[in-house]
Amino acid sequence: MAKKVVATLKREGGISYAKVIRAVKSEKTGSYTFKEEMVPTPMVQETLKK
């Protein structure tokens, strides 16, 4: 199923996407969790600045 999703994201004339994975520290336990987002390639730097 993942192959189908990747194939639809890479069609010609479409926007290219990047997967951004960030480690977020929990305030309660102090452990880290990972948040994944699909972001248009030109907006990757803006997303990482948040």
Rank of each mutant, 00 (worst) to 15 (best):
M1P: 03
M1H: 08
A2L: 11
A2C: 11
A2F: 11
A2P: 03
K3N: 10
K3H: 08
K4F: 08
K4G: 06
V5T: 12
V5G: 03
V5M: 09
V6S: 09
A7N: 12
A7Y: 04
A7C: 07
A7P: 01
A7S: 15
T8D: 11
T8V: 11
T8Q: 13
T8Y: 03
T8H: 04
L9Y: 09
L9S: 05
L9P: 00
L9Q: 09
L9W: 05
K10S: 13
R11A: 08
R11K: 15
R11E: 13
R11T: 10
R11L: 10
R11Q: 14
E12I: 05
G13R: 04
G14H: 07
G14T: 12
G14Y: 04
G14C: 09
G14Q: 13
I15F: 05
S16R: 12
S16F: 05
S16Q: 14
S16E: 10
S16W: 03
S16V: 07
S16N: 11
Y17N: 01
A18I: 02
A18R: 12
A18Y: 01
K19L: 12
V20K: 00
V20D: 00
V20M: 01
I21M: 12
R22Y: 01
A23M: 04
A23I: 01
A23F: 02
A23P: 00
A23W: 01
A23V: 03
V24F: 05
V24G: 01
K25Y: 00
K25R: 14
S26W: 01
S26V: 05
S26R: 13
E27K: 14
E27A: 09
K28P: 00
K28F: 04
K28W: 05
K28C: 08
T29Q: 04
T29H: 04
T29V: 04
G30H: 03
G30V: 03
S31A: 07
S31N: 11
S31H: 07
Y32I: 13
Y32W: 09
T33K: 08
T33C: 03
T33V: 07
T33Q: 07
T33L: 03
F34D: 00
F34R: 10
F34A: 06
K35W: 02
K35G: 02
K35Q: 11
E36V: 14
E36H: 12
E37S: 15
E37M: 06
E37R: 12
E37V: 08
E37C: 07
E37A: 15
E37N: 11
E37T: 10
E37P: 00
M38C: 10
V39A: 02
P40N: 02
P40K: 04
T41L: 14
T41E: 15
T41R: 05
P42W: 02
P42Y: 01
P42M: 03
M43S: 06
V44H: 00
V44D: 00
V44I: 14
Q45S: 15
Q45H: 08
E46Q: 15
E46C: 05
E46S: 14
E46D: 15
E46Y: 08
T47C: 12
T47K: 15
L48E: 10
L48S: 03
L48H: 02
L48D: 05
K49T: 12
K49P: 00
K50G: 12
K50Q: 13
